[in-house]
């Protein structure tokens, strides 16, 4: 009988080996993204329009903005346009990641490359890491510029008042906010391998997520049952804190009624990281479970 002698792997070899996969996947993602460039230009326009629509509506309906601001910011003063601009930009960013990761497995399955991928010895987590790092970098850059542009158009005063530090924090919190979304979307993607109809499910979820994270309205104005979902959804935390830093609305902990937290933004950032770990593990476990189930029965290329 043939016997292969496996080399003992040192940690540095293990690290290097996985880094090759991460870099390879990152590069491939960039090359593919380049062929869909027209989509990228839309990614810039959509959040701007999404910001414009409710603002136009507010102006069209003729409600007093001061009055709404009092409603939105619970007594604080802040920029309602900035509030909505940041809400719709972060929502769009989350959707980009949601689409990227939840349709990923299904698309590979439909085009026939999923088998090739799963037949390689590359570990799933390094492939995901490569994809995630590209997706975050690419989408955060787009989102950042789209935010700046929408603020320039709708909330110029607010933009010029933001210091460099809050702007930097906005970027950091945005990146951290993407992390749990990757695990969550991967989890959805794995579920979809079972249910097949990914596009309609994700279409549903994008509205649901927008509803619970309070894209246009503060979560305090949502009914209690919706608010329960809001708290469980990581992006709600990110968007509230980013708004707190930039638009002057209360941070997430304050919205929840916790008044005397020492570093409210730091604490909720840690909670977001906790979400990232939680959803990362769940996504991975569920995918492995379904992969096994599919392998046991129909095989991965069936659609």
């Amino acid at each position: 009988m043939i016997q292969i002698i496996e080399k003992q792997e040192s940690f540095s070899y293990f690290f290097k080996k996985n880094l090759i996969v991460v870099k390879g996947v990152f590069r491939q993602q960039w090359q593919i993204a380049k062929s869909y460039l027209s989509n990228t230009s839309i990614a810039f326009i959509v959040p701007i329009v999404m910001t414009a629509l409710p603002l136009l509506l507010i102006r069209a309906v003729g409600v007093d903005e001061q009055l709404i601001a009092a409603n939105f910011f619970g007594g604080h003063s802040g920029s309602i346009s900035g509030f909505i601009a940041i809400g719709s930009n972060i929502w769009m960013l989350m959707l980009a990641i949601l689409w990227d990761f939840s349709t990923y497995l299904r698309d590979e399955q439909m085009t026939g490359t999923l088998e090739t991928l799963l037949m390689s010895p590359a570990k799933r987590y390094s492939i995901i890491a490569g994809r995630a790092s590209f997706s975050i970098l690419f989408n955060v850059i787009i989102s950042f510029f789209a935010t700046i542009i929408s603020l320039l158009i709708f909330a110029r005063d607010m933009l010029f008042e933001i210091g460099l530090l809050p702007l930097f924090l906005l970027l950091v919190l945005t990146v951290i906010g993407c992390l749990p979304m990757i695990g969550l979307s991967y989890f959805i993607g794995a579920l979809v391998l079972k249910f097949k109809e990914v596009y309609s499910l994700v279409n549903l979820l994008q509205w649901f997520f927008g509803l619970i994270m309070g894209v246009y309205v503060p979560i305090t104005s949502l009914p209690l049952i919706v608010r329960v979902f809001s708290i469980m959804f990581p992006a709600t935390w990110s968007v509230s804190d980013i708004r707190a830093i930039t638009a002057g609305s209360p941070p997430m902990l304050l919205l929840l009624g916790i008044k005397n937290a020492g570093f409210p933004i730091l604490i909720s950032t840690l909670i977001v990281i906790g979400f990232a770990i939680f959803w990362g593990i769940i996504g991975f476990v569920v995918f492995s479970k379904y992969e096994l189930k599919i392998k046991r029965n129909e095989g991965l290329s069936k659609y």
Binding site: P54, L57, I58, V61, V63, D64, L67, I68, N71, F72, F195, K196, E197, S200, L201, N203, L204, W207, F208, G210, L211, Y216, V217, P218, S221, L222, V226
Partner: peptide, 30 residues
């Protein structure tokens, strides 16, 4: 794929709720 059918219904409901909430927040004005 019955899920497609069900999700379409819920999508409509969620989209509806979006605007109910937006309208409510605005209308607490005037």
């Amino acid at each position: 794929y019955p899920i497609d059918f069900v999700t379409q219904i819920f999508t409509a409901v969620f989209v509806g709720l979006w605007f109910v909430f937006l309208f409510q927040s605005l209308s607490s004005g005037n």
